[in-house]
């Protein structure tokens, strides 16, 4: 299969799912008008990828500066798919990356962490970009 690369726009994040390096990245802002239209190919790719993957370590980096409430629901679903795959024996590490003084992003990360049982979940603080 091919890697999935979608460039960032003003209101959708960059998607860089690399099926050779086994790193999946979602980075940027997410507040599309229609969330399911944007994320449908992302979920389709993920499903196929997880079906075909073996014992490799998979790293997922989620670095969202901002997301609206309907994206929040989609991101939860995304994490659930990963968690289910991990409970089936896939080796998945999920890094939730947030900026140093962004309390809300940290809180979202902590909540996802509480809900997920099988993936290795890391809260990763990084220095602000500007």
């Amino acid at each position: 299969m091919n890697s999935l690369i979608i460039e960032a726009t003003k209101y959708t994040p960059e998607i860089s799912f690399d099926c050779e390096q086994h790193t999946l990245g979602i980075k940027g802002k997410s507040y599309p008008e229609n969330t399911s239209v944007f994320y449908q190919p992302v979920f389709e790719w993920l499903e196929e990828y997880l079906e075909n993957i073996g014992e490799q370590n998979i790293t997922v980096n989620m670095e969202l500066i901002y997301f609206n409430s309907s994206s929040s629901k989609v991101l939860m679903d995304f994490c659930d798919v990963l968690d289910e795959a991990a409970s089936d024996g896939k080796r998945i590490t999920l890094n939730w990356i947030y900026e140093e003084d962004d309390e809300d992003a940290l809180e979202f990360g902590e909540e996802f962490q509480e809900d997920l049982e099988s993936v290795t979940f890391n809260l990763v603080e990084k220095a602000p970009e500007r």
Binding site: E33, Y66, S70, D101, D102, E103
Partner: peptide, 21 residues
């Protein structure tokens, strides 16, 4: 304004605008 405040205002404007839409 701190980072969290800026993002909260931004977020509230987006949610409201998308509600209007």
């Amino acid at each position: 304004a701190g980072k969290s405040t800026v993002l909260r205002v931004f977020s509230t404007v987006v949610e409201n605008a998308q509600n209007i839409m």
